[in-house]
Design a protein around this nucleic acid. Sequence first.
DNA 1: AACTAACATCGTAATATTGCGATAAGTATG
DNA 2: CATACTTATCGCAATATTACGATGTTAGTT
Lengths: 103, 103
Amino acid sequence: MGITKSEIFTDRQNKIATMLKALAHPARIAIIQHLSRAEHCICGDLVEELGLAQPTISQHLKELKNIGIIKGCADGKSISYCIDEKVWKQVKKEFDSLFAVKS
Amino acid sequence: MGITKSEIFTDRQNKIATMLKALAHPARIAIIQHLSRAEHCICGDLVEELGLAQPTISQHLKELKNIGIIKGCADGKSISYCIDEKVWKQVKKEFDSLFAVKS
DNA sequence: AACTAACATCGTAATATTGCGATAAGTATG
DNA sequence: CATACTTATCGCAATATTACGATGTTAGTT
């Protein structure tokens, strides 16, 4: 099939899986790390930083935007991306509670 | 293409992405949650618990085993799965350090 | 308005994932 | 050893993901 049967899982299970999935790519991890360090959010520099084509970076940014973990603000003719602290903390909390079950 | 260019990323970025990917499916989240609560690890019950076919569950278990986060011990004619505390804590630590960059 | 720079989106090829029926493999039990 | 039971693997169909060239779009510049 290839299609995840999300109907049979709880909303929370689906939500956690979706968030994890959005982060589950080395390019997106790299983007997150970069945005974290370069306090002043970046944009097209990511194309140079990572060795991926511009449309590819744009697509990865879109996926991170979809879960709300990053946001882009217009800045001249370029767009400045940065981590949305609020969402970032929520995601962290969600993961923590998953990991808290055991240990 | 469809193939991730893992050569261009650091080992750590690839590792984190791989771990996240292994957890990034509602069925696997459900399995982890179940294994966490049922201290006495379970196995084929997962087929009934979640509404997925046995081969599908088996495949998900395999993916979780691949990253070492769960392990299976023979128990009679069935196999008893449980979370590998050691690996579980390592993964938690890895995620924590990712989330620690910001916030 | 035409031009340019910076992103986004479209379309598509290559590959990966999800799910399951069929079947194999392993292990008690009679 | 034959049987039953439990899990793993194979093979395939359906769908999703990754990457990028080509092309749109938007916003400053001249």
